[in-house]
Design a binder for these strands. Structure first.
Length: 486
RNA sequence: CGGGGCGUGGCUCAGCCUGGUAGAGCACUCGGUUCGGGACCGAGGGGUCGGUGGUUCGAAUCCACUCGCCCCGACCA
């Protein structure tokens, strides 16, 4: 037995599932599409929650909780929203032995129930803005499911805000998207492209949808977060009205935005390798694992030193675990913690103690060096920061190498077939071309980036003119990023 | 939802074709020796063979239905 993990090059999907299972992130349950998130996976989610929640609060948002069940009639109120979500909704038609007069649906998202409450709570412009976030589970009846990436039930946060004016709602929408991008890049070490979704990829009922898109290790794109400007669509459907400064009664402008446990899938597929998971230090439940090397009477010689080391690191603010289990050999532990993605491993044995040093091995580069015990805290803190940066740089470099600007449809088709990744191309904006491209190449418009030349775009045309549509040749107003996606 | 594949101790699988008392390796438990890249010896525990129904004296094995998982396509965070 060496790894029990299928190599990425052999079968990326299987590799992903192997990592999820072997690293004990999640496991299948008896309910189709529903996974049990195991303690190690949940610890990652808790760090994601903490990082985001802190940012939401810092930008004036507060948390609240709304019901899991929604009267089915409420869903029907916003036409596009119903059409978008109806096929994915789970229904409750019976309670105990009673048939329900009106069936309940299990929330696939909470716009309608929250909108209904906002209609009660908002009376005046003085009540605005309302900036509420909810941490919750939602259910979407999926046909094809994969752990973390698409599950029938998943955990997420959904922000729902109401504003006095259209520009304020737009500001909020973009502010949150920027927050998501900053979080993904600084905490998850995952570079993302932020931009606007095409009409056909828009959230059901939104005026505008924005997303952050990341590139996975197999060259497919993953939507990692979305932020929607809902305009007055939901305000009108749910009669969320207020009396304005000018005494007239108006509809509010709303937004909604969310990220989910899918981020854990993104993390796995952004950084992982054939040995398993690689976690960026800032999101790793254990940033360091200490493996004592047992020799002779090690419980009384090596172990106390390992405990001292642990205490020293805790003092330095490092999340550290001491693996003092006697039943496993050091070599076994090395492989085990590598597979589970711990950024740094420290080995301490008689030889180290003699030198007053400790062996340190990086998960990302596998470099192994000896560090003096003296001032080990600051040294490890610095090393963790280096790893965090190195993982981001590596992921960005990978994305750059797999992003290509193309000028002709033939080139587009050829590249999309042979080589996974992003293709940047001029697009006229029509749904017709988008659909055609999708059916011919499987690639979809991931988004239209805010930044005309995000890194990795290759040569930019001399002028600001994006050129003519890659497919139909009409004048284009935008450049879009295309990819096969999850 | 269509096409394909697979369901046998926790995991990977053999046994099925040709029906006759359920196996291996790994993992797990206990004892001992070990331990700087997945240690070794000894002794143990654990499966009504995905489910239901049928054929049969007898079904893991044959038949029907059903459920689940994986892969590939159409829909989605």
């Amino acid at each position: 037995m060496v790894t029990e993990i299928t190599p990425q090059s052999e079968d990326f999907s299987r590799w992903y599932l192997d990592v999820v299972r072997r690293a004990e992130l999640a496991d299948y349950t008896d309910v189709k599409g529903c996974m049990a998130i195991r303690p190690y996976g949940y610890a990652i989610w808790e760090l994601i929650v903490q990082g985001l929640d802190r940012r939401f609060k810092a930008t004036g948002h507060v948390n609240a909780y709304f019901p899991l069940f929604i009267p089915s009639s409420l869903l029907m109120k916003e036409k596009e929203h119903v059409e978008g979500f109806a096929p994915q909704v789970a229904w409750v038609t019976r309670g105990g032995d009673e048939q329900l007069a009106e069936p309940l649906i299990i929330r696939p998202t909470s716009e309608v129930i929250i909108g209904t409450m906002y209609a009660k709570w908002i009376k005046s412009w003085r009540d605005l803005p309302v900036l509420i976030n909810q941490w919750a589970n939602v259910v979407r009846w999926e046909k094809v499911t994969r752990p973390f990436l698409r599950t029938t039930e998943f955990l997420w946060q959904e922000g729902h805000t109401a504003h006095e004016t259209e520009p304020e709602a737009q500001d909020e929408t973009l502010k949150i998207l920027a927050l998501y991008k900053e979080f993904a890049e600084s905490e998850l070490a995952m570079p993302v492209v932020d931009g606007e979704k095409s009409e056909s990829e828009k959230f059901a009922g939104a005026s505008k949808t924005y997303s952050i898109e990341a590139l996975m290790g197999d060259g497919r794109a993953l939507q990692a977060g979305t932020s929607h400007n809902l305009g007055q669509n939901f305000a009108k459907a749910f009669e969320i009205q207020f009396q304005g400064r000018d005494k007239t009664v108006q509809h509010v402008w709303t937004t909604s935005w969310g990220v989910s446990t899918r981020l854990i899938g993104a993390l796995i597929m952004t950084h992982g390798d054939d040995s398993g998971l690689i976690l960026p230090p800032r999101i790793a439940p254990h940033q360091v694992v200490i493996v004592p090397i047992p020799r002779g009477n090690w419980q009384e010689t090596v172990l106390p030193k390992a405990r001292e080391l642990q205490a020293e690191l805790i003092k330095a603010g490092v999340r550290v675990m001491l693996d003092d289990r006697d039943a496993y050999t050091p070599g076994w532990k090395f492989a085990e913690w590598e597979m589970r993605g711990i950024p740094l491993r420290m080995e301490i044995g008689p030889k180290d103690i003699e030198k007053s040093a400790v062996m340190v091995a990086r998960r990302d580069t596998r470099e192994k060096t000896s560090l003096p015990m003296d001032a080990i805290g600051p040294a490890v803190v610095q090393l963790l920061a280096d790893i965090q940066q190195a993982l981001y740089d590596r992921a960005l470099k990978y994305r750059e190498e797999h992003t290509q600007r193309v000028a002709s449809y033939d080139e587009f088709k050829g590249l999309m077939e042979g080589r996974p990744g992003f293709l940047i191309a001029a697009w006229c904006g029509s749904q017709e071309c988008e659909a055609q491209i999708k059916s011919e190449t499987q690639a979809t418009v991931r988004n239209i980036p805010f930044d005309r030349a995000p890194t990795g775009g290759g040569e930019l045309p001399a002028s600001d003119d994006p050129g003519s549509c890659i497919r139909c040749g009409r004048a284009s107003s935008v450049e879009a990023w295309f990819a096969k996606s999850y």
